[in-house]
Design a protein around this nucleic acid. Structure first.
Lengths: 203, 203, 203, 203
DNA sequence: ATATAAGCGAGACGGTACGTCACGTCTTTGT
DNA sequence: ACAAAGACGTGACGTACCGTCTCGCTTATAT
């Protein structure tokens, strides 16, 4: 008779994780965010619903985890100049948005607003990362003497990401022109930063 | 037997329309977008569900109609200068967004992506209006000789609206600082326009 | 100024009554009892629902009134013998049942059980009539000395009508053979009456 | 990843079946056939509507199944004589009818006429059973030489069951007198059979 | 002659029940 | 102990009817 180990039991099957992720992505692409059901994911993945709920508390957590998992590309490195950094960052933002499905992003954002747990997760995982990237960028520019004053990173975040995000989510514009918009945004924000147009953080 | 009248029937009761609108707004404010149910709206409004579905094909159409109805405030008029026009427009955008609930806006945007009928309605009702406002603004600036080239109105739209929209919906930032952001955006976009940074429409 | 007359107003339009009756009969024949809706009757009759509800309190009252209106054929007269009377009465019962739609009768009976008002109406209009016919028949037979004792009219009613009614409603048998069954029933009941098999009423 | 089992799944909970049956019976007894709603059944049974609709396609199927399930008592056995067999069968019919609610039976019969699926089910489950009982009874009587000719079983069915069924459903008479009626019917039908009054089946 | 009163077709109204669907949980059998 | 399968309670959806209530109009009768 085996002794009751406290860490025993059958280990989670990593193929199940992959099957879930693939099924979610396929179903989102085929039928859209609103039509995604947990039963359909389980059927497509050839697994049981319990295997999903053992991993994620809710459907939204599942989608969130699956979608935001592939987005962990490395952010752009130091280019040596403010203009270079901003341009690279805008391009990075634009790329990620252009490669995402607008409907999925919209659904995700709505679900984040509906569920405080997801909101926390989103803030911690995502916004914090981007904010730190921006803060580092600004720090480097300050060190280089490229900025007259230290602009509020939150404002810069909105100014850089906003047009790109809105372009596809709100305005329904083509992802093909996102690079052009990213370039314009970068140009504009760099000029604004250089001229001290963007106010500092208010304590 | 009397001849069949061709235009009879009891007219729609406008009190029902108002009751629906009020109930929707109250329930959205109290419990949020995701928790809104048609039964609850009917109960709160003191009407039957049929009265709702006689007016709106789906729950989403109802919310869409109710929420986007009060938004038909007059856009800002000609201020005489490009900077004035842009500043006023950014403030107008910011105001409307700041007075809306972020969760409701997010839900609405997600539903618009999920339903082609709503998408059409949104484009026709909303985007078309804003685009025409922007086009007129640009036309006036061109006539005044304030622009070196004619910028793509779609890009300007994204650059102006994007940061404000994203500020609350995506970044979850405070509505209190929206006016500050609107001012910054206006400054930045005006400069960019004056310097010909924003490319023209690609035919 | 005329005083409020107590008998003024536009009189009921008899064409409306006929249109209702015809519509009800047509729709029952086409789609069956369960599928009959008041809206459909109004539409088919080319009238408004209010005209129906001005005449009948409920849908069931309407159907009841329409269906049981054409059934007021004269019951068979005295034939001079018990056997002749019973045979004629069984044939009369059989005829009425054979000319009715089984589904409609079943629906009507169910509605009668569901609504006390209809039940009263049915008893007063229908059962009372048939009972009096039977009582008269028995009285004549008693006077002729054809019966050893006075049988309970209620039992005779059940014995005569029962097989014919059940034949189509419960057993789903063909109306074509109803006359044969009526003849058999008459033969059997006459014999039973003559031999005093049917007990008298219990006081 | 484990291979998909072909026979897994949680089995139907028999307590749910019993709870449904009990709830249906209780609600029918308390409020009558017309007032029975699926929601009420679910609430009373302490289960979800889905559990009901997983078992029955419609409300009518549910009622049908519940009501006609307890009716599967054993039919009377061979008594050795035609008179004994007929008397026992009439008493059996009378018993089942007397123990049923007239309103429920009426509703059930109406629903059977409204739904071809139920009609088939009723014919196969019920009529076929009773017909075979009758056929066997007639066969035995023929073998005993108690019948001059072979009567049509369908006619005998109508003659035996008809008065008893109609007594309560159509005439609204008291169930208390059903045994008396059953006895009279049996007497009458036995005499008719013995004398060859009931015609043979027409091919 | 004209005001009153009721009837008329049309269709919106509050309400109730239907049957469907999805969620997240629970229960079985298998390995 | 985890897997797939699938039943479970819950609760919202959108539909269909019921019987009632306006609406603007028509039609008799009673002043």
């Amino acid at each position: 008779m085996p002794k009751p180990g406290q860490a025993g039991g059958r280990p989670r099957d990593s193929r199940v994780d992959h099957a879930i992720a693939e099924a979610v992505r396929a179903l989102l692409a085929e039928h859209g965010y609103a039509a995604l059901t947990v039963d359909a994911v389980a059927a497509r993945a050839g697994i049981g619903k319990a295997a999903i709920y053992r991993r994620f508390a809710t459907k939204q957590e599942m989608i969130f985890a699956v979608i935001l998992h592939g987005m962990s590309e490395k952010p752009p490195a130091d280019t040596g100049t403010l203009r270079g950094d901003i341009t690279a960052l805008a391009a990075w933002f634009g790329d990620r948005i252009a490669h995402a499905d607008a409907g999925v992003m919209a659904g995700l954002v709505a679900d984040i607003h509906a569920d405080p747990a997801l909101q926390t997760r989103f803030t911690d995982t995502y916004l914090t990362l981007e904010r730190s990237i921006l803060a580092a960028l600004i720090d480097r520019a300050m060190a280089r003497g490229e900025l007259p004053t230290r602009p509020d990173p939150a404002l810069v975040h909105g100014l850089l990401l906003g047009p790109l995000f809105t372009w596809q989510i709100m305005l329904g514009e083509s992802a093909a022109r996102t690079p052009q918009l990213a370039h314009t945004v970068a140009h504009m924000v760099t000029d604004a930063l250089s001229m001290g147009v963007i106010p500092p953080a208010t304590p």
